[in-house]
Amino acid sequence: MTISPSAVDGAVSETAASQAFEAIKRDLIRGRFAAGEKLAISALKAEYQVGLSPLREALNRLSAYGLLEQHNQRGFRVPPLSEQELEDIARLRIQLECMALTQAMQQGDAEWESQLLAAQHRLLRADQQPSQVEQWEQAHLRFHRTLLAPCGSPWLLRFIGQLHDQFDRYRRLAPPNPAIRAQLDAQHSELVEMALDRRIQDARSLLEQHIQLSWQVAQGATGC
């Protein structure tokens, strides 16, 4: 079978668009771009070393994902920070993650327990290196994903992942709160104990508290 040059070009463009999507998404969540900032296409092309077509594809996908706003004939802007939006995101997180946690604890097996303990260990190691922010962020994300992984619903996990990304944009722009951070860190280990013991109601209550505490921190990004 002969693969046409146009098919190869299309595959390369799609790969470039996916890479640009992931790189820009990561920087949007990290707060590299200011809320309300208009993104300059020429600057993005140079910064991310990507062509115009795959770049526009990536920006369109980020707009559909909710991390950018697209304005007709005026390009793309970073969404503003909104106390109301943050509240909506946090409340949805509580509802969906508690649902996923219940299903995960009902369906999780010994392999999941092993993976959860490993994710906890990596997070504890990252907690001991406060200067390594990105290492902690990755370990934290992996922990929460592992906690909910066996829930059995790819769509539920997809929605939760999107909400996490939106929430983290606020959290990472907020001023540090060491006292609350210490509580959150301790709750990770408590969640593991409850998950292993299949204490579903206790775990749901703690996860709700966990998200509410993190929400309290994230509100600092909106000046509340």
Rank of each mutant, 00 (worst) to 15 (best):
M1N: 00
M1F: 00
I3R: 14
S6C: 00
A7D: 10
A7G: 00
G10I: 05
V12F: 01
S13Y: 06
E14C: 01
T15N: 05
F21K: 04
I24C: 14
R26E: 14
I29T: 10
I29L: 11
R30C: 02
R32G: 15
A35Q: 04
K38P: 15
L39G: 05
I41N: 01
I41F: 07
S42C: 00
K45F: 15
A46M: 05
Y48M: 10
Y48W: 03
Q49K: 04
Q49G: 06
G51L: 12
L52A: 07
E57M: 10
N60H: 13
R61I: 01
R61M: 09
G66V: 07
L67P: 01
L68W: 08
E69I: 15
E69Y: 06
G75H: 10
G75E: 05
L81W: 04
E83G: 12
Q84E: 15
Q84W: 09
L86M: 12
E87M: 05
R91W: 09
R91E: 13
I94Q: 15
L96S: 04
C98F: 08
A100W: 03
Q107F: 11
G108A: 03
A110P: 04
A110Y: 01
A110T: 15
W112T: 12
A119E: 00
H121Y: 01
R122F: 06
A126L: 06
D127V: 09
Q128C: 09
V133A: 07
Q135D: 14
Q138N: 06
Q138E: 11
A139K: 03
F143C: 06
F143R: 02
R145M: 06
L147S: 13
P154S: 06
W155F: 11
L156E: 02
L156M: 08
L156I: 05
L157P: 12
R158L: 10
R158M: 07
I160V: 04
H164P: 10
H164W: 02
H164F: 07
F167I: 00
R169W: 10
R169K: 08
Y170N: 08
Y170F: 11
R172F: 11
A174Q: 10
P175N: 00
P175G: 08
P175I: 06
I180D: 15
R181M: 04
L184P: 10
D185Q: 11
S189Y: 05
V192R: 01
L196F: 10
L196V: 13
D197L: 15
R198L: 11
I200Q: 02
D202S: 14
R204Y: 05
S205V: 02
E208G: 03
E208K: 01
E208P: 07
H210Q: 14
H210F: 13
S214T: 01
V217M: 09
A218P: 02
G223E: 04
C224M: 03
